[in-house]
Each structure stands twice: as structure tokens, then as C-alpha cells.
Design a protein around this nucleic acid. Sequence first.
DNA 1: AAATAACTGATTCCTACGGACACAGTTTGG
DNA 2: CCAAACTGTGTCCGTAGGAATCAGTTATTT
Lengths: 224, 224
Amino acid sequence: MSVEFLWGGRARPTRGPKPALTLEGIADAGIAVADAEGLAAVSMQRVAADRGYTKMSLYRYVPGKAELIAVMVERAIGEPPALSASGWRAALEEWSRLLLGRYLAHPWTIEATVGRRPLGPYEMGWMEVALAAVAELPLSGAERLDTIAVLAGHARMLAQQAAARLGEAEMSTAIAAVLREHGERFPQLTAALAGAATEGGDQAFEYGLARLLDGVEALVRNRS
Amino acid sequence: MSVEFLWGGRARPTRGPKPALTLEGIADAGIAVADAEGLAAVSMQRVAADRGYTKMSLYRYVPGKAELIAVMVERAIGEPPALSASGWRAALEEWSRLLLGRYLAHPWTIEATVGRRPLGPYEMGWMEVALAAVAELPLSGAERLDTIAVLAGHARMLAQQAAARLGEAEMSTAIAAVLREHGERFPQLTAALAGAATEGGDQAFEYGLARLLDGVEALVRNRS
DNA sequence: AAATAACTGATTCCTACGGACACAGTTTGG
DNA sequence: CCAAACTGTGTCCGTAGGAATCAGTTATTT
């Protein structure tokens, strides 16, 4: 995975036949496959076939599969948003919800972005936007980074659960069978799930978001 | 991925030759490979070869690779701990740190547990322990579940960063090259990273943990 | 003790994957 | 006009997960 591929401008050479494909088109075809059938269904063959070309044609545009996935992720996450909310708390809420929306629209981006990898321009742009929202707060650089990292992690986790159709209600039904047989080993879990089922409403994202921002607010208040 | 495989007791049949392998031994071999070379290096061939057997022998003990990974995850996460701390906040802190420790010991468990999958007994046990710690709080069942889910997600995220050797310091050096060229596009990011580098200390986990628990504390205080 | 049912690990085969490489056709600059 | 540079394609390789089958081993049954 080369950083240059994500960041460097790819100058179109002047000689030779016109390219029949574009990197963007290939990436979009890959995104379509991943959206419809998951990241595992994305293979060079499959993407090439969807565009009506052979597998090896793609290697004229992309060094390898890892780079293709990286470009797909960048395009799926998309350009960083311009936040309209005023005040750091409202801005962070807006940012988190927008990020969650992007993840929900392309759930495979989460498994595609585990582990060490180079960040693309769009991803860095998202960080920049969030950092601007907390710039006014009396926090250190590390604390500002940590704050938005925790928020992003929270959005990722919830998107992942939603993608697996594991809201509270679905989770209880999925685990219900197991719990029916081994429920006595997990009394707290049984009780909590029973309560969650009757209460209804899947507010996990908003709950975590509120707790996190409450925590930040408490820290800020403590310092001033 | 069958739930029965993780939960059902595998009754040893009485007839036939003694099995030369055990599921636990196979899983441990897989864990050793994953610890040393990452989850991608875990193949049926590789695991079998490490035990001195052929690939297909493993299918006598495990239905497929997905189930092998699931068993590996269960054993790597390990038995849920008995918390020694008293008070919900200290207990949750202890639980989170222990969970982080397990993730750090076997970083591949994180990529192995993305997406929909059945939970094993140990994983449920960890949830049970954390839920017991928040049982005393005036929270609904859904709120209790959300609380520990956010904490677990935070531990996962930090373990993932640590596994990629992406502490604040390493992160700045990794992104430094990109930022040297495109730094003007990301002034907030540049400033935050510069600050984090001089401040030193990689307190991301403790920072997020403290913010989250502060948030929970604020909610609890509001209710009483 | 002998027979048999049940289980063992090994062998062979298949499909699909990512990727290296050489090839023939096409476009453009000198 | 022709050679350099670039295009897409076909062939080949190693490795992956897994199905089907086979011969050998063992405990229960008769």
C-alpha cells in the first residue's frame, strides 16, 4: 500500500491508446459490488467483469487490490462536510451523525479500515473538520485528537452493529435462543435484554454520543 | 458459522480410533500463528502443518475456517475476569483495562470480530461481568447495554491503534511525510499533532475512558 | 474371539483468488 | 513515417478453502 498512490496526482500520459477505463470508474464498480454483496465479493475478476473487461486490465490503473480498496474507501467516505452547527458540542454532534451516515451507507468501509494503513485526503479532511470544531476548547493537542478519535470509534461501532442488523431488538432475538438454554448463567444479560426489549427504541448511538460529550463538557467546565 | 458449535458440548464418540488432535490444540496452533504473523497467515494448511498433519485432517474437528477462527477468538479472549474493584466506576475501569489487555495480547481478535457473528460463552461472560458492575445504577436495560458496548468499543479501537503501532507519536511520524507536503490543507491537524508530539504520553485510552465514565456519572447524578 | 459399525487421517480433485509476464494492437511525438 | 510508449489480453503459477473418497483403526456387539 503506497501512500503516493492515494495522494499523488496521476498524470495522464500523452502517448499510447486512450485508456478505456478510469480509476474512478473502477472504484465505483467495486463500491457497487461491496454495497450489494459485501467486501468479500470484491475481487479483481468480479470488478473487471462488471465493467466488461478482463481482470488484468485493472492492473493498468491500480497497483493491486489493496490500493483499489483504499480508493474505494476514500470515495465511499467522501468529501468532508461543512458543518453548519454553531458551538463545539452541536458541531461534534453533527459531525458524528454525518460520519455515522457515511458508514451506514457503505458498511464495508469499516472492515476495510481495520489495521495499519495510510489515510487518504478525504479521511484527513474529516479529521480536520472535527478538530476545527474543538479548537476553541481548552484542550491539549493530544486531548483534541483523542476526543474526535473516540467519537469516530463510537460511530464505527454503531454502524457495524447496524450493518449486522444488530439493534437492541434484533440482538435480543439473535441471542434469545442461546439465552433460553443458558440464561441462568447470564442473569444480568437476560435482565438487561428483557428490559431493552420492552423499552423499545434503538438509541445506542445517541446515548453514547451524549455520554461522551457530557464527559468532555465536564472536563472543560473543570478547567475554567 | 453455527451457534451450536460454539455452545454445544462436543460429545466424544466412543467408537473408532483415538483422535490424534484436539479442537483446543488446533485452535491454540492457530492462535500462535495469528499472534506471530497476523490473522491473514492463518490458513488450514498452515495450522495443520504446524501440528504435523494434513490440511483435511482439521475438518474432522472443525466444520470450516470460520468456526476455527471463532474458537480461536473465544480462547484468546479467555474467561471473563472476577473484578476486584468496588464501586461501579472502579469496576468498569478495571473491566475496560482488562479487556484492553486481552485485545493487546491478541490484536488479530479485533479484525476477526467485525461484522455479524455468534457470540461465544466467554464473550457473553465478559458482558455479564460488566453488566453486574452497572446493575446498581439507575439506568434502563438498554442504557446498561449501551454503556458497556461503548466501553468495549473504546477498548477495541485503542487496541487496534496500538497493534498498528499508531500511538500519538508514531501516528505523527507516519503522517508527517504527508503533512509536510499537504500540511497547509490541514492546519488544525498539524497543530494538534505538533502539540501531541511535544506533550508526550499516549493517554488516549485513559482519556476516553475518563470522559465516558464522567458522562455516565453526570447522567446518574442528574437522575438522583 | 470374531464381526461389524463408527471413526480416524490421508489422498486426490475442484474452483477461485491475486498477481507476474509476455504478447499483439494502438496512438502520438519526433 | 516510424519508433517509443502505452493499451488490453491470454497464459501461467502458487495458494487458498473445501468436497469426495479411501484404507486403516478401534470399541462394541454377537
